[in-house]
């Protein structure tokens, strides 16, 4: 699936900078994404992962650096390149951002209806097909508020893939989900990534799952990419920041064990 042989990466982020007032969120972020890859950007909360994705999607304007898509630089001046990028890219918001006044079918049909010249029949056919692929065809007339969190996530993915994008950006797709649902969302992403062949850029904190599903991993820290490489290399890296992030559950376990060995530490008493 990966097209690493292609000389031009699908997406290239070069020295992106972004500040909010005096707060520097991204100081020198770089990332290269090749076609067909699943690329994951890891990082602690507040390190600017979502800001990076929003800069890519054009929701935020970077203060410096450049973004290249399929060999063309995306700038505010070049509206055509930006429009082309939007046509070929989809963004899955952390909050799903479904239009709550529209039904599931209307939500999925919206991008086709508004941005393509397809006939109404074709729009409905493709929208229903996307709903069917995500096992939501029985809920076409439901409003997002009448659906569960997992169904809303699938609906947002159906809306993201209905335009057959080449690149899908996932902003913390598993935030607030329990482990089972988290696994279900990641396996859903991989399943549809293989089925439709899009390139995926995922922003998350879930290290264990990421090492299984990604082709390429990047760790964002203090506004720059601290690590970039294969998941295997990430698992073996001896960079202290990578270790701190990767092994944080083990470190917590060690801290708790250490506390237990201290003389004044007592186990909490459970009363019924």
């Amino acid at each position: 699936m990966n097209d690493l042989a292609s000389p031009v990466p699908l997406l290239s982020i070069r020295s992106i900078k972004k500040c909010f007032g005096d707060q520097v969120v991204l100081s020198d972020a770089n990332l290269v994404v090749h076609r067909g890859q699943v690329v994951t950007v890891l990082g602690r909360s507040g390190t600017g992962k979502s800001v990076l994705l929003k800069c890519l999607a054009g929701i935020e304007t970077p203060d410096g650096g450049s973004i290249w898509f399929d060999g063309k630089e995306l700038t505010d001046r070049d509206a055509q390149a930006r429009a082309e990028f939007r046509r070929r890219c989809s963004y899955l918001f952390q909050s799903n951002a479904l239009l709550d006044s529209l039904t599931a079918l209307e939500n999925v049909a919206l991008p086709l209806e508004q941005t393509t010249a397809l006939s109404e029949v074709e729009v409905m056919k493709r929208s229903l097909e996307a709903l069917r692929q995500l096992e939501l065809d029985n809920f076409a007339d439901r409003y997002p508020s009448q659906m569960s969190g997992g169904m809303q996530k699938r609906l947002a993915l159906a809306r993201a893939i209905v335009t057959r994008p080449e690149l899908v950006l996932f902003d913390e797709p598993t935030a607030g989900l329990d482990p089972q649902r988290r696994n279900a969302v990641f396996s859903m992403i991989v399943k549809y990534q293989r089925q439709f062949g899009f390139t995926a850029v995922i922003v998350t904190h879930d290290v264990a799952e990421v090492l299984v599903i990604s082709d390429h991993v990047a760790l964002l820290d203090a506004g720059t990419m601290r690590f970039e490489g294969k998941p295997e290399a990430f698992a073996k890296s001896d960079d202290p920041v990578v270790i701190d992030f990767r092994d944080s559950p083990a470190a917590l376990r060690q801290q708790i064990e250490g506390l237990r060995q201290e003389p004044h530490f007592s186990e909490p008493v459970v009363t019924s």
Binding site: S90, L98, L99
Partner: peptide, 10 residues
């Protein structure tokens, strides 16, 4: 939701 419309090119 408005940001979502813009990212969809709407």
């Amino acid at each position: 939701q408005i940001a979502a419309l813009e990212t969809m090119g709407v």
